[in-house]
Amino acid sequence: MPRSLALSNDLRIAVARLSRRLRRAVADETLGFPHMSALGTMQKCGAITLQELSTKERVTPPSMLRTVQGLVDHGYVDRTPHETDGRKQLLVITDEGQQMIEETRRRRNLWLATQIDALTPDERQTLQQAARIMERLAESDA
């Protein structure tokens, strides 16, 4: 059994709670986490098919179809014909979608920065070190 089991439990809980708190700071409160996650992936990847988006988000295509339809209904995503395969469509973020993502990021960063500013200098330094370590953990293959 790993020696750091208690620490891993504490860290997992803290990360989950912080993540939930940050998810509440959105520019459009009618959207849930799946919508924001899909938009973020589309922003990072550019034009993408539903199948590719489903794979990247690790959800089934029918589930992603419902998520994408909500984004289309809000005007945050457009469907365009695929350049080489007439059976497929590409999903593209609209300007309104881009603005909503940027505003959400601004709100989340502002909330978190305000919380960090309330910490002591030593706590901020510790948090900076922890951020680098957490990034390394997130990118590990093990």
Rank of each mutant, 00 (worst) to 15 (best):
P34C: 13
T55N: 15
T60A: 10
R21W: 07
T41R: 05
P62H: 09
R24C: 03
P62A: 05
E57D: 01
A27M: 09
L18P: 00
T60E: 04
D28L: 06
P62K: 11
S37Y: 03
G75K: 05
L53D: 00
V15W: 02
D78S: 12
S63D: 02
V77L: 06
Y76F: 15
V68F: 09
V77Y: 04
T30H: 11
A16H: 11
T60V: 09
H74K: 14
R66C: 03
T41P: 06
A38S: 12
T49Q: 07
T41Y: 08
R58D: 07
Q51S: 10
T67E: 00
I48P: 01
R21L: 07
L53F: 06
T30L: 10
E29F: 10
V68S: 06
H74C: 13
G32V: 02
G46T: 08
S63F: 09
A47N: 13
M36H: 09
Y76D: 04
A16N: 10
R12Y: 10
T41A: 10
R20I: 03
Q43C: 10
V72K: 13
A16D: 15
P61W: 14
S54C: 02
Q69V: 14
T67D: 00
R12H: 12
Y76H: 11
Q43S: 09
S63E: 04
L39E: 00
R58Y: 09
V77R: 01
Q51P: 00
V26F: 14
E29M: 13
G40V: 00
H74N: 15
P34A: 11
P34V: 12
L18V: 11
R23H: 09
V15I: 15
V72S: 07
L50R: 07
A38G: 05
R66D: 09
E52R: 15
I13N: 14
Y76S: 09
S54R: 01
G46K: 02
P34S: 06
L53I: 07
Q69C: 15
L71T: 05
L65E: 02
S63K: 11
A14Y: 05
A16T: 15
R20L: 03
T49I: 11
V59K: 14
L18H: 09
A25Y: 12
E57H: 01
R17Y: 06
S54Q: 00
L71R: 05
M64H: 00
A14K: 03
L50M: 12
R20D: 02
V68D: 03
G70A: 12
Q69L: 14
R21F: 03
A27C: 08
V72C: 11
K44P: 07
S19D: 11
L31T: 04
M36C: 01
I48Q: 02
E57Q: 08
D28Y: 04
R17C: 14
S19E: 07
H74E: 10
V59C: 13
F33I: 08
V77N: 03
L31M: 01
